[in-house]
Amino acid sequence: MTETLLDVRNLSLYLDTPDGDVQILDDVSFTVERSTTVGMIGESGSGKSMTALAVLGLLPPRARVTGEIRFRGTDLLAMSRAELARLRGTGISMIFQEPMTALDPVFTIGQQISQVLRSHRRVTRREAREKTIEMLDAVGIPDPARRSGEYPHQLSGGMRQRAMIAMALIGEPELLIADEPTTAVDITIQAQLLDLLETLGRERGTSIMLISHDIGVVAELCRRVVVLYAGQVVEATTTDALLERPGHPYTSGLMWAVPRLGTRRQRLHAIRGRVPQPDQLPTGCRFRPRCDFAVPECAEPIALAPVGDGGPEHDVRCRRADELDLPGLVHDGAEATVENAPVVQGSGS
């Protein structure tokens, strides 16, 4: 029933720097099924945005990649520039955190969206204009005919984000990559945009890969989650399973680091230390120096592998995944509170 749309296999990415090659992504593998939503969670430096750029073939020239990025079965890494350009917009589209990076200030939003359509499909100006207005309407821009004649600076932040979504979807892509699409907007606007993405994804059958640092945002929209840490996938499973029983100490730690409406001044679980620089990675598990559960064997390399009780859909990169019982955000069938959470070994403030 499910069909794999995007299949990233053993993707590694190196950047050429004055000090030699630095590895940014290491053996990243994940899939996005057709008409589904996948979240990618990670902090700064985890490699989540680089993964997105690799999928779009938009890496900087000094980047070198190995592995495979299969889209509808074809390896994107083997494609020519022209083939990739054709794919972007009609196969895969992307939206960014800051719409002004994607919108050109000197053209009206209508011109820009029509231009995208006309570069991919044989349509007349008039048809392109009609389609554009339809699209602006679909993304919830009021009075779309008038708005299409406005310049990006005339729109509010939320409206610009909608315009960018319209531009990304006008070519009817099968996969939409959204990189922190709601990070720069207000919370009531974020709720609107998440609703919009959910509706558009469902109605059009568009797969969505949502990149975010916010586990709550991912939980709102995505059925599956991939957790990245220091350039590696450390956990991948369904959102429900992740929130119930995270398999990796990093994932569980992240959940308990975030203040929630009920955490009132109680001690948050701070993950000690910081994300390692790509040229100063520890041997073995990359989370090891910050992990409360590390044992000497963790210095040995460790692969992403299925966990025992998680079923085939739960992969974790931790050698102690089967024996650890890490706290998730669900306790006795309800939201876990600090009181009923199993003790997370503390770390300094």
């Binding site: 709720a191 959102t239 929130l243 409406l261 955000l329």
Partner: peptide, 14 residues
């Protein structure tokens, strides 16, 4: 409305 807009890290069944 602000509280309702707050994204919640909860599984679908909750």
């Amino acid at each position: 409305a602000l509280l309702a807009a707050q994204p919640r890290a909860l599984p679908s069944y909750l």
